[in-house]
Write a protein that binds this DNA or RNA. Sequence first.
DNA 1: GATTGTGAAGCCATTCACAGCC
DNA 2: GGCTGTGAATGGCTTCACAATC
Lengths: 255, 255
Amino acid sequence: MTLPPQATSPTAETTAPERVVKAIPEATVARLAVYLRVLGQLAEGGAETVSSEELAALSGVNSAKLRKDLSYIGTHGIRGVGYDVASLQHELEKVLGLDHPQAVALVGVGNLGHALAGYGGFGGRGFPVTALFDVDPELVGSPINGIEVRHVRDIPRVCPAAGVTIGMIATPAQAAQGVCDQLVAAGVHSILNFAPTVLQVPAEVEVRKVDLAVELQVLAFHVAGHRSADAGITDSGTAAPQVVHGRNGSAVATS
Amino acid sequence: MTLPPQATSPTAETTAPERVVKAIPEATVARLAVYLRVLGQLAEGGAETVSSEELAALSGVNSAKLRKDLSYIGTHGIRGVGYDVASLQHELEKVLGLDHPQAVALVGVGNLGHALAGYGGFGGRGFPVTALFDVDPELVGSPINGIEVRHVRDIPRVCPAAGVTIGMIATPAQAAQGVCDQLVAAGVHSILNFAPTVLQVPAEVEVRKVDLAVELQVLAFHVAGHRSADAGITDSGTAAPQVVHGRNGSAVATS
DNA sequence: GATTGTGAAGCCATTCACAGCC
DNA sequence: GGCTGTGAATGGCTTCACAATC
């Protein structure tokens, strides 16, 4: 259904190079994933269509932003009605590359790694964790969640063989850079880093980071700012409909 | 040491309202926390001063951005030399509100919650997890990491008593909104959400979210985009010195 | 009448480039 | 000579507001 994903630029694309896969802002991509999840919930609830206003409220953004976001993927909502839940879902899955799944490797099976390995299917259909690595002799060789833990030194062999495209690093900080280098050498160009360090990588590698300490410190900053303020915070600008939300930011944490 | 934190605005502050605690961009605050961590490592290594170029490289940003960031807090580096590591550390700690610690409550002590509770002191001096909550009768009453797990229904009583200012939610998605409402009612206005849902909160509450599924989907998007591209990605614009990094984004995940 | 899609305007953040200082 | 601090320029994202469409 629906047309091939157009560039949606107002001006005619005179020189279309193969495929137009760019032009979607970074920030938009992250929100598309959120919309997709909300659509899943709506679909479960039996909804067939949804308005931008409704979907936006459930996603914690305003409706103009949502419509602009969807315009990047060349969506076809129906004016006066809204969006078809099912087809928008499929559209988003296709854009995000979820139509064929990505094999994920997880390095570092400590407390956090364990939790991540167990996270399993994530929200909906997921990212299969295909390979686990650690250096602890107690862990190496034993299975977790049905997957055998390999030694980190096997990354160069195992990852390409398993077709791993995404790596998650949940090691202690000191080990993270070394592990990262090995993943990159093994052809893994997308990395999600949970270790509290900034990773140095070549330009073609995409790193996103999830940094607990930073998140807490940002919150602490705001706590500090609002101390002794009591009346104050009534200036939210425009009165929101009902549903509001603190702010933006999102795992924004990427380095 | 050092002067009181000035607003750093170019124009003279004619109407200074009590204290000038704003004017620092959201994105800058997150990076300040990163600089602080790197400074900690430098201090351990025995460094006394550091140049913006050096600190920036270690933090994965360019030096102009770093200097601009520091300018917001009215820093006093020494031209021709750099920054004093120790005093910059203290300056950053003060700005981020780390001089007196924030009590943190963690709700949801499953796999992930366990890992978070154990994370303990985080990078350096930390955010003491002061209270744990869950609904599982098996967990409630038993101690984890020396802290007794309480029932979620006790949030309204325990949190104010313990002076909790920051809440972390690591429950299943269905439970998250309810828990959030209770935290807010208990006066907790800064929340870090690990559950895969968008939380609806009043405007005075700051929510940051850490969303695994979103992070992975953003990475998947980029994997999809670079498929079949082989030569391509040489257009990084300016040639970076040596150290580079994928991109930005950071836990950007806030809703 | 309701709701989408999108130019245009506005805002925030990044980058540049250089004056000021050590 | 080296390095910081910062106005000015640029770029990206968000918001507004409304014409187009159902």
